[in-house]
Simulated scan of single mutants.
Amino acid sequence: MLLSYAPDITTTHPTLVTAVIRADRITATADVSSRLPPLEAAARRRLDTGQISEFPEIRAWRHAFSVMGLKPTQYRCAAESLLRRLEKSGNLPSIHPLVDLCNHVSISLAVPIAVFDLTHIASALTVRPAEGSEHYLAFNGETEQPEPGEVIFADNAGEAHARRWTNRQSARSAIRETSSDVLIVAEALHDDAHDSLSMLLTMLTTAIRETWGSHMEGELILEGERQSVPGTPHRLLE
């Protein structure tokens, strides 16, 4: 099991649904450019319908951040940050083919997606409250320590690979040119989260298989319990 949740996370957030995909054979030379415009167009259509803060998906994450004691206008889930960047600047930056793909799926569904390089993760990830002793590598090169009780993605070595749950990933396990074996995690809390993440699983597993020829395992986790999704690839990496 590469991803699990502490019991108090699923108890406090009972509507949580998570999509997890593990894939190999990822390269930085793949071309996903033809897949991005339809996803961006879907996001723009939603932006034309109303305020980002009123999207059900974003509203649910804002509520979760409030429950965690965070100001939703100061700390935003990754999907909201991407949508606001798209609305303000008109486009998203190109980082890596897989990251670009996931970012565009994220804005199309208003669901935060994290992409981790498994080479830099010790064994597995647990979404749990921080103890305060964990280390987080910021993208500016500085090492931070999450506050005790802050929700983090922690590995078995005490490294925090994301802070404030879906707010900010770590540079330690960020996708880079040499990344090959990856873990993709999408999380949602809104009423139709199961349908949204089932769609997300289909979109991403199809795109990744067709682009990289990856072996994949895809699952939904409902309130912390693993449940396989019919019709998605389930082949374990060899």
Rank of each mutant, 00 (worst) to 15 (best):
L183W: 01
S196E: 08
D48C: 13
S196R: 11
G90P: 07
A78K: 06
A188M: 05
S214D: 02
R168K: 12
G50H: 00
A60T: 00
E177F: 05
P112E: 13
L2S: 12
Y75M: 05
H104W: 03
E147Q: 15
S94F: 01
L82H: 15
Q51F: 06
R168Y: 02
R22A: 05
V99Y: 02
H120V: 09
I52R: 03
D8P: 08
C102N: 15
I107K: 05
R168W: 03
A114I: 03
T49H: 12
G224L: 00
T202N: 13
I107V: 15
T211E: 02
W165M: 09
M1N: 11
G231V: 06
I184D: 00
L47M: 01
A60E: 08
P37A: 01
L118I: 09
H190N: 13
L39D: 03
G69A: 15
H63T: 14
L101N: 09
H104R: 00
E40L: 13
S4Q: 10
L2Q: 09
N167V: 11
T29Q: 15
E144T: 07
G149L: 04
I184L: 06
I21V: 11
W212E: 01
C102P: 06
A30S: 15
A186I: 01
P97I: 01
E144S: 08
R84V: 11
V151P: 04
L101C: 12
L125H: 08
V229E: 14
A162E: 02
S180P: 06
G141P: 01
G231L: 11
P37Y: 00
L222S: 10
L125E: 02
A171E: 13
L236E: 04
V67L: 13
A174D: 07
R46D: 07
I9K: 06
A124S: 15
S94I: 06
S53M: 01
E177P: 01
L101A: 11
M203F: 00
W165V: 04
L83A: 14
M216I: 04
L2E: 07
S108F: 04
P129S: 13
H63P: 00
G218D: 05
E144K: 14
V127R: 00
E80A: 15
Q169F: 00
S196A: 15
R168E: 04
P7H: 13
T143G: 03
E80G: 12
P233K: 10
I121P: 10
L183C: 09
P14E: 11
C77E: 09
S53H: 09
A171Y: 05
F55W: 15
P230Q: 13
N103Q: 14
E223N: 14
T126C: 13
S108D: 05
L86Y: 04
L204V: 09
L197S: 03
L220H: 04
E217P: 00
C77V: 06
I26V: 14
E134A: 10
R128W: 00
M68S: 12
P72R: 05
M68F: 10
G90R: 11
I58Y: 00
L109E: 13
V185F: 01
I175M: 05
P7L: 04
L197F: 06
M1Y: 10
V17I: 09
P230T: 12
R44S: 05
A28K: 02
L101P: 05
A162Y: 04
F116L: 12
E142R: 02
A193R: 09
V32F: 09
F116W: 12
E187R: 08
A110P: 07
N103T: 08
Y75H: 14
P129I: 14
P233M: 13
H13K: 03
P7D: 15
